[in-house]
Amino acid sequence: MDLPSVKANPPFQQIKAVLEKIPSGDHVWDLDGDEEKRILNWLVKLIATNMEWIENTDEREDLLVTVCQMIAERSGRMAAPTKVRKFTMGNHKEIRILEPSLTYDTLGFKTWGSAPLLSAHLPEWETPDPSIRALELGSGTGLLGISAAHQLGWQMVCTDLPEIVKNMEHNVLENESLVQENSGSVECHVLDWMNPPSTDHPPAWLERPFERVIASDCVYETNFGRLAIALFLKYLAKDGIVITEYPLRHTHLGEIAEFEELMQKAGFIRDTGEEIGQEDFGSRYPVTCRWSRWKYSNSV
Rank of each mutant, 00 (worst) to 15 (best):
I146D: 01
I146V: 10
S147Y: 03
S147T: 08
A148D: 01
A148R: 01
A148E: 02
A148W: 01
A149F: 02
A149V: 04
H150R: 02
H150S: 08
Q151N: 05
Q151K: 06
Q151C: 01
Q151A: 07
L152A: 07
L152I: 06
L152F: 04
G153F: 01
W154C: 01
W154E: 01
W154K: 02
W154N: 03
Q155A: 05
Q155K: 15
Q155F: 01
M156N: 04
M156W: 09
V157F: 10
C158L: 13
C158N: 14
C158P: 06
C158Y: 04
T159V: 08
D160L: 10
L161F: 11
L161R: 14
L161D: 12
P162Y: 05
P162T: 08
E163M: 14
I164G: 07
V165Y: 10
V165H: 11
K166P: 00
N167S: 13
N167W: 12
M168H: 12
M168V: 03
M168G: 08
E169P: 04
E169S: 12
E169F: 02
E169Y: 00
E169H: 08
H170A: 03
H170C: 02
H170G: 00
H170E: 09
N171R: 13
N171A: 07
N171Y: 03
N171M: 10
V172H: 04
V172S: 08
V172W: 06
V172A: 11
L173E: 15
N175P: 09
E176A: 09
S177I: 12
L178I: 07
V179T: 08
V179F: 02
Q180Y: 03
Q180P: 00
Q180W: 00
E181F: 03
E181V: 05
N182A: 03
S183E: 00
G184H: 00
G184Q: 02
S185C: 08
S185G: 11
S185I: 07
S185R: 09
S185P: 04
V186I: 12
E187N: 14
E187G: 13
C188E: 09
C188M: 08
H189G: 04
H189F: 06
V190W: 14
D192N: 15
W193V: 10
M194Q: 13
M194K: 14
M194V: 05
M194A: 13
N195F: 00
P196Q: 08
P197C: 11
P197A: 07
T199R: 10
T199V: 06
D200W: 02
D200N: 14
H201Q: 14
P202R: 11
P203N: 13
A204Q: 14
A204M: 03
W205Y: 15
L206E: 06
L206I: 05
E207R: 14
E207Q: 15
R208Y: 07
R208W: 04
